[in-house]
């Protein structure tokens, strides 16, 4: 059986918990169905997910860690847009040279577009801030 392929683009900032949770749940569902999730791309305000200094608000689950755990367990790349990241204070190198959180990689729009062009489905999560 041919598996469908997916890319997720998350644009909601980490403080938009419900958008982030929805995207993560969707990613988990794709994998649990045995379908291919090629990449989770963090764009716009979502680039902040890749900041190692990110802290969840009190009482909220740590979505950054949950994304990392998901990526580790299923070998799904978590790619953050380096250009937009720099506009949000993200230095796209691991510490001590930068503040890129473990489990994330910095990529470019070219990489994302090329992946997207070879993928069947795009799922976009904008959240409240971007809507």
């Amino acid at each position: 059986m041919a598996n469908s392929s997916y890319v997720i683009m998350l644009q909601a900032a980490p403080d938009d918990y419900f958008a982030g949770r929805q995207a993560l749940q969707c990613a988990q569902d794709i994998v649990s169905r045995g379908e291919q999730l090629k990449q989770v791309f963090f764009y716009g305000p979502a680039v902040v997910y890749a900041n190692q200094f990110l802290q969840s608000p009190s009482g909220y689950p740590d979505l950054q860690e949950q994304w990392r755990k998901f990526s580790r367990e299923h070998n799904i790349p978590l790619v953050v847009c380096a250009t937009v990241g720099s506009q949000y204070g993200l230095e796209s190198l691991p510490p001590p040279a930068g503040n890129l959180a473990e489990g994330f990689s910095a990529g470019g729009l070219a990489e994302f577009i090329e992946t997207l062009a070879n993928t069947e489905h795009l799922l976009q999560f904008q959240g409240n801030a971007a809507c």
């Binding site: 644009q11 764009y43 937009v84 470019g108 070219a110 577009i113 090329e114």
Partner: peptide, 18 residues
């Protein structure tokens, strides 16, 4: 900000002949 970010992505896609 989404306007600028979308434009950047569109320009990249066009530059890649997509």
């Amino acid at each position: 900000a989404s306007a600028r970010q979308g434009l950047d992505m569109l320009l990249m896609a066009v530059s890649l002949d997509q």
